[in-house]
């Protein structure tokens, strides 16, 4: 058994997302007028040893996000966990 952790890193809501804004403009110009917002982020899959407890995995994943995957100055993150 392995813990599968799916991490989503996105820019904080108050931070400008130029990439998302550009994609939105392009979609609108292509005729998808109803698209009112695009925010882009990064997706990462982590695999942990299945022997770890849920709490331990969560703690480590939090640390990993804080230290490396996200820059807390501009980004926030969330993750989902699944053992399979």
């Amino acid at each position: 058994m392995v813990w599968h952790v799916s991490v989503y890193v996105t820019l904080k809501p108050s931070v400008q997302d130029p990439q998302g804004a550009t994609v939105q403009r392009a979609l609108n110009q292509m005729g998808y007028q109803s698209v009112q917002g695009v925010r882009m982020g990064k997706f990462t899959e982590l695999e942990f040893d299945g022997k770890l407890s849920e709490a331990e995995v969560k703690k480590q994943a939090d640390e990993i996000c804080d230290k490396l995957l996200a820059n807390p100055n501009i980004e926030s993150y969330r993750f989902t966990m699944e053992k399979k």
């Binding site: 130029p18 990439q19 550009t22 994609v23 392009a26 882009m40």
Partner: peptide
């Protein structure tokens, strides 16, 4: 160049 900033 970087059309559309190479975004996406």
């Amino acid at each position: 160049g970087f059309s559309y900033g190479d975004y996406l």
